[in-house]
């Protein structure tokens, strides 16, 4: 088969897209390389196709989608006046918005309460940053002191309870120890209750435990009275 310029031109896209195989491709190339008219044509079409394949798509204008929606679904209605106001209210009355508003309010109340701001006795001066800081600082110290007191009370109660438990154990295990003992030698100038080895706090615990024992004896009477 003899390849003419017309035939090369007709099969040019087939060649560029790899549809020519074997002897056809070789004959095409043989003519295209030797022909002064076909060689530049093949080169320019090849580079043109490469250029077109590398051309990027254009971005759509931003307003195009809205214009299409307006044209297909009709223009969006713009409601004014009372109807518009009602639409806004209707939009706000959604569960999502209500939950959000409630959580924001709760947070605000907690923050205001912690900072010591009172709505009943509110003054303009209370809103000064220095005043808010002082109130908050005072509140923090008050809470801190209450915590310390609570912990120390707990400690005393624990000590009382442990002492009582210890005494009960002693009563069960060694009743003979409760028998009266001969009084030890008295040191002149000292009372009977003086025990230098015990700390003061233990003395206080012993005292409280005695009072508790008395209360425990009294308690059935009190409870009987309350029943009556």
């Amino acid at each position: 088969m003899t390849w003419t310029c017309d035939l090369v031109e007709a099969r040019l896209s087939d060649y560029l897209e790899g549809l020519l195989q074997g002897p056809e491709r070789a004959e095409f190339e043989a003519h295209a390389n030797s022909c002064a008219d076909c060689a530049p044509l093949v080169a320019s079409v090849r580079s043109l196709v490469v250029e077109m394949h590398s051309m990027d798509e254009l971005e759509t204008p931003p307003r195009l989608v809205y214009s299409i929606l307006d044209k297909t679904l009709g223009p969006r209605e713009t409601v004014t006046g009372w109807q518009g106001f009602l639409n806004v209210i209707r939009g706000l009355a959604t569960p999502k918005f209500a939950y959000g508003a409630a959580s924001v309010m709760a947070t605000l109340i907690i923050i205001l309460g912690a900072s010591g701001f009172s709505l009943r006795k509110s003054k303009l001066a209370d809103l000064r940053p220095a005043a808010i800081y002082q109130t908050a600082d005072r509140g923090v110290h008050r809470v801190g002191a209450a915590c310390v007191k609570y912990v120390s009370d707990l400690r005393v109660v624990y000590e009382i309870q442990s002492r009582l438990r210890q005494d009960e154990n002693n009563l069960q295990t060694k009743p003979e120890e409760l028998l009266p003992k001969p009084s030890p030698e008295k040191i002149p100038g000292q009372t009977d209750e003086y025990k230098p080895s015990q700390p003061r706090q233990q003395n206080r615990a012993n005292e409280v435990s005695r009072q508790l024992e008395m209360l425990a004896v009294e308690l059935p009477m009190l409870s009987e009275r309350s029943v009556r």
Partner: peptide, 11 residues
């Protein structure tokens, strides 16, 4: 055929 002619014409 149209694609081929179009490319050549464009070039």
């Amino acid at each position: 055929s149209r694609i081929n002619r179009g490319r050549i014409e464009l070039a």
